Computed example of a mutant assay.
Amino acid sequence: MVFRPTARIVAAALAMSGSAGCASLSESTEQTVLVQTVLDHRQIGGVGCVLYNDAGKWFVTTPGRVTLRKSSAPLRIDCKKEGAGWAYERVDPKPNGNLWGNLILTAGVGYFIDQNTGAGYDFPSTLTVIMRPTEERDELPPPAAGVTLY
């Protein structure tokens, strides 16, 4: 069988979009992240942190790893160490490659599934939380919801 140039291009495009696949089938809805805390440009340990989003709530003592449920909603991080400091941060998820492939491959149906299960999104693998000294908490109003981590 002789392929015409346009047939080769279509076949290649189908193969590439097929490799992207449905994130809910090929990606996990869970992700393990490392949480570390920094105060005055130094890493500090023994800080208790609560991570939460619309899919659940997780506890970790830094530095430490925690497995959380992925979501298209932001991840909130609330940390505190008595006598040392506190932090309240927000991490926005980033769409992974499977989410966009799924939009094309399934005409949008898989995109909505991946968005609802969180499989089409990832959080950074390392979350560095910037702590504030305890004395700042008394001087400043409560932190605004939504400081974005990179």
Rank of each mutant, 00 (worst) to 15 (best):
M1N: 13
V2S: 13
F3T: 11
R8N: 09
R8Q: 07
I9G: 05
I9T: 14
A11I: 09
A12Q: 09
A13N: 13
A15L: 10
M16D: 11
G18Y: 02
C22S: 14
A23R: 12
A23W: 03
S24E: 10
L25D: 12
S26E: 12
S26G: 09
S26H: 03
S28L: 05
T29S: 07
E30G: 04
V33G: 03
V38C: 03
H41G: 07
R42T: 08
Q43C: 01
I44E: 00
I44A: 01
G45R: 07
G46K: 10
G46P: 10
V50G: 09
V50N: 10
L51C: 03
Y52N: 13
N53M: 02
A55R: 14
A55E: 14
F59Y: 14
T61W: 04
R65Q: 08
L68G: 01
K70G: 03
S71P: 00
A73Y: 08
A73I: 06
A73G: 09
L75H: 04
R76V: 15
R76I: 14
D78A: 15
C79A: 08
K81G: 05
E82K: 07
A84V: 10
Y88V: 09
E89T: 14
E89N: 08
R90S: 06
V91I: 15
P93Q: 14
K94E: 04
K94F: 04
K94L: 08
P95G: 09
N96I: 10
N98I: 11
L99S: 09
I104E: 05
L105T: 10
A107R: 04
G108S: 07
G108R: 11
V109I: 15
D114K: 02
N116C: 01
G118E: 08
D122V: 15
F123Y: 09
F123G: 00
P124H: 10
L127M: 09
T128A: 02
V129M: 03
V129Y: 05
P133C: 06
T134R: 05
E136R: 13
E136Q: 15
R137L: 02
R137A: 05
D138Y: 06
D138I: 06
L140D: 10
P142H: 04
P142V: 04
A145D: 13
A145Y: 13
G146Q: 09
V147Q: 13
L149C: 03
